[in-house]
């Protein structure tokens, strides 16, 4: 019975998410919601990568903004300065980021736990400083990055970008869901449980970790490219060390135990920052800090798991009530 409730929950989340996604850009909501939804989509893509890494292999990265930024900068420079087709620029950016992640992956994943966090943080700081020093535009960044377009159809409004970004985002979510449910997913969970045990049943632990790391970096790179082509302007401050921390916050807030949690994590953090707290002026960051703490104290496994368990609890209550009713009906 409980199994069925849980499975139904899973489908109802996906269905309601799809319905929401299709409904939101239309007339019911003011125009800037599409802008915020685009940002949520982009952030979700970065967060999903981190969920795979942190939630399924137990490896933390405090430097994801670096890969997010490398994608954005490659896309921006190639398409603006060298007039490459933006799609091609995006592809090259993803390949370059993946290659970079692969090269540094092996040495860096010899580190574990906290030391891995420190190393990725250092990497993030280095890349961030180099953006300001070596990349065109310096600290002020690059403006006038061209839009993505298919044939003559340019993604030049937020409404159009919305479908582009969420298209990408859903593909990324589905790929990740497949990985998690596949053989590799089980291997990843085994690594999370115990590396020694995983090793002993013939899983090449290092290779799996690096593979997932590369995949999550490619996600981040794609997200960065989408950001660059949507915003038309990027600057190093969008990829500073604090952004890496915020990505971890999104992943944990949503719930590490599920790929779909990323949508909730990115959703709540972006919404808080860009919309929900706007009326509070200078009190904004105080309330933001309070909410971060409260969510983690009362929903330590994240929003998604909390919603899920509340749903299951409610459903159980309902079923019990119905059963009672039926029983009473039978008695009378």
């Amino acid at each position: 019975m409980l199994e069925r409730v849980k499975r139904k929950w899973y489908y109802s989340v996906i269905v309601s998410l799809l319905v929401l996604l299709i409904v939101i850009p239309f007339d019911w909501f003011p125009g800037h919601y599409t802008t915020i939804m685009v940002l949520i989509g982009i952030n979700t893509m970065v967060t999903v990568g981190l969920c795979l890494l942190l939630g399924y292999t137990g490896q933390v990265s405090l430097g994801h903004a670096a890969f997010y930024g490398i994608g954005a900068y490659f896309s921006a420079v190639l398409s603006k300065t060298y007039h490459l087709n933006p799609w091609l620029a995006m592809l090259i950016a993803a390949i370059a980021t993946g290659a970079f992640a692969y090269v540094i992956g092996y040495p860096i994943f010899r580190l574990k736990g906290n030391y891995l966090a420190v190393a990725t943080l250092a990497l993030g700081v280095i890349v961030y400083i180099l953006f300001g020093k070596l990349a065109p535009g310096g600290p002020d960044g690059i403006a006038g990055i061209p839009n993505l377009s298919i044939g003559g159809f340019a993604f030049d409004t937020w409404f159009k970008r919305y479908f582009l970004v969420w298209g990408f985002c859903l593909v990324v979510l589905l790929i990740s869901q497949n990985i998690v449910n596949s053989r590799s997913g089980r291997a990843l969970r085994a690594i999370h449980g115990s590396e020694a045990a995983a090793e002993s049943i013939g899983i090449n632990v290092d290779r799996f970790k690096v593979k997932i790391f590369v995949l999550s970096c490619v996600y981040a790179s794609l997200a960065g490219s989408l950001l660059a082509h949507s915003m038309a302007h990027i600057s190093p401050s969008s990829f500073d060390p604090m952004v890496s921390v915020i990505v971890v916050v999104m992943a944990v807030m949503g719930g590490l135990a599920s790929i779909w949690g990323a949508v909730f994590g990115a959703g709540i953090v972006v919404m808080l920052k860009h919309e929900l707290l706007l009326g509070f002026g200078e009190l904004e960051i105080i309330i933001y800090g309070l909410i971060l703490m409260l969510v983690m104290i009362f929903m330590p496994e994240g929003l998604f798991v909390w919603l899920k368990s509340s749903y299951v609890k409610l459903k159980e209550l309902y079923i019990r009530w119905r059963l009672g009713q039926i029983r009473r009906g039978a008695e009378t």
Partner: peptide, 13 residues
């Protein structure tokens, strides 16, 4: 990791 996020929240606060 959730506790770490709480400390981030506290820092912002």
């Amino acid at each position: 990791v959730s506790l770490i996020i709480i400390t981030i929240g506290a820092a912002v606060f």
